[in-house]
Amino acid sequence: MNILDRLKDGLKKTRTQIASALSGASGSFDDRFYDALEDALILADIGLETSTDLIARLKSEIAGRGITTPAAAYAALKTLLAGDLAVTKLPDEFPPKPWVILVVGVNGVGKTTTIGKLAGEFGAAGKKVMLGAADTFRAGAVEQLKIWAQRTKADFVFQQDGADPASVAFDAMEASKARGIDVLILDTAGRLQNKTNLMNELSKIVRVIKRNLPQAPNEVLLVVDATTGQNALNQARVFNEIIGVTGFVITKLDGTSKGGIAVALSKNFGIPVRKIGVGEGVDDLQNFDPVSYVDALLGDLPDRV
């Protein structure tokens, strides 16, 4: 099964809900139709605010373009969603060396696993990759990253548990410069965005990186668990305020999630979704493509309309 199919499979429930809401409208778009659609969007974790906004825009599309069939309404909704998701893509080429990627997020979203997958991807593209274990807090985190480094044949920089993460970042910066590394990926401890001292620790890490190499970190990826509800917006807001997020990675999109949070995130922050994770294997991290994502989310309108 390829990745898109798996994504489609994961988002099946969401798709059916939205589709059935839409096909309920037999030619006329009344309040009942919009209510049903709103229910479906909220159930998909798109959030109340974004849903209300989407529906308002859909209403004016329908009125403005004289749409009368559910199929056309469906297409219009897809265009709107894809528009919300399409934010500028980052370059695939990395001129400066080392290209520093800082990976952040709350606890248990899959940061370390994402890094393992990223390392595998860069490694396969012939880049020299180094992983820096700046999660010195969680028990077993350094071990976990080390195993990923071995699997993907990446260089590995670490200190003992409990060390200052900023100092690990510093070591990794120095080592990556000395060894001519192409891509340095730094793991950080999971932190809830309302813990001031942990967020300060994060800004210290960024400060240390910047002092070492002013253009770094080139990417700050916020990893978001797709099963997260509206709290993901809070996470994005706070992390973005404190260290400036350049992209989202949405993990665990296979099977259990609703996937709507991707829409809410890009719409509210104008920050692109860089990668999506749909499985635990090393190849299961994919570039994000708005159109195919919306296709997976909504699919084609079922025939039974």
């Binding site: 909220i42 159930l43 998909a44 974790d45 709350v106 248990g108 668990d225 099963t227 997260t228 509800g229 509206q230 709290n231 993901a232 259990t256 999630s257 609703k258 949070i261």
Partner: peptide, 12 residues
């Protein structure tokens, strides 16, 4: 269960 879970938590 994660307190931050969204609409699907109950289904899981």
């Amino acid at each position: 269960a994660d307190a931050m879970a969204g609409q699907d938590a109950v289904n899981v």
